[in-house]
């Protein structure tokens, strides 16, 4: 048994040395994140609905492995209870995000999307931004996705054509998604590793946080900011939404009028035409 373990260790050591020698000219290949991104691209490509059922389980496994690789670079939060809650929320969010793009029925996509939004809201709550977390749930999961669901359910997925239920350009989208995730995590890993990097320097100091997001009455602070410093933006957005509302009503009213006119014209034509 010991002999076997020793052999495995030795082989592992030799292989890793070989590996380092081979890849010393391409330092990117030595980074775990690169391999995570490659695994993620492959996994997402297999997972996306491309028609048949081929390789979707393998794709899911590859995606989970890639997520594990990315997660291994995250710093420990210092407390197992915090860490556990974080893993739970982050896992739910990311897995639900993968579910959003990999389902064939649009209704299931929308449901996974709402689960991802719930996870995001939980992550906001977890980091102390309770208003942002609740607002995400109310605005996105509670209003926007419900509207999506209405449309999707009324559109009847059974009646959809084949080309509506597969993903177009699966390869390109999987690759670009993986590249995006890779770049973001490289920047983040850089921040975690060097405490004096630019992002860390720009982060607000503890007293500012205590007065801002972490204050017990931070909703009042937020409201004050919105209606003093950002008043013009709030007003402009309000006017924009009002214009959109008026436009929608105008379209509906115009449509009703043209329908009535068309009906009247048809009625006149029927009356005028000899039986």
């Amino acid at each position: 048994m010991n002999l076997l373990l020793a052999t495995i260790q030795e082989t592992w050591a030799t292989w890793t040395t070989h590996w380092h020698v081979w890849t010393q000219h391409v330092p990117m290949l030595q980074s775990r994140l690169t391999w995570g991104a490659i695994l993620l691209a492959l996994g997402m490509w297999l997972l996306l609905p491309r028609g048949g059922r081929r390789g979707r389980a393998a794709g899911a496994l590859l995606c989970v492995a890639a997520l594990g690789v990315f997660a291994s670079r995250l710093p420990f939060l210092g407390d197992w209870s915090h860490q556990g809650v974080f893993w739970l929320l982050a896992g739910v969010t990311v897995v639900a995000g993968l579910g959003t793009i990999s389902m064939r029925s649009p209704v299931y996509c929308a449901l996974w999307f709402s689960l991802a939004l719930l996870g995001t809201g939980g992550l906001f709550l977890f980091s102390g931004a309770s208003f942002l977390g609740i607002a995400t749930v109310i605005v996105y999961a509670g209003a926007i996705v419900v509207t999506f669901l209405f449309v999707l359910m009324l559109a009847q997925p059974e009646g959809n054509a084949y080309y509506d239920r597969i993903s177009w350009e699966a390869m390109a989208s999987a690759l670009s998604g993986a590249v995006l995730v890779f770049l973001l995590s490289v920047v983040l890993a850089d921040t975690f590793n060097s405490p004096r990097s630019t992002l860390a320097a720009q982060a607000p100091a503890a007293p500012a946080l205590a007065k801002g997001v972490l204050a017990p009455e931070h909703v009042a602070t937020l409201g004050g900011q919105l209606f003093s410093r950002y008043l013009v933006s709030v007003e402009v957005i309000g006017v924009l939404l009002l214009v959109a509302l008026v436009g929608a009503s105008a379209i509906i009213m115009l449509q009703g009028r043209t329908d009535a006119r068309g009906r009247a014209a048809r009625g006149a034509a029927e009356e005028g035409s000899p039986q």
């Binding site: 809201g121 309770s130 609740i134």
Partner: peptide, 9 residues
């Protein structure tokens, strides 16, 4: 702090 909003959510 956001109890009422939580109920709405």
């Amino acid at each position: 702090d956001v109890g009422l909003l939580y109920i709405f959510a």
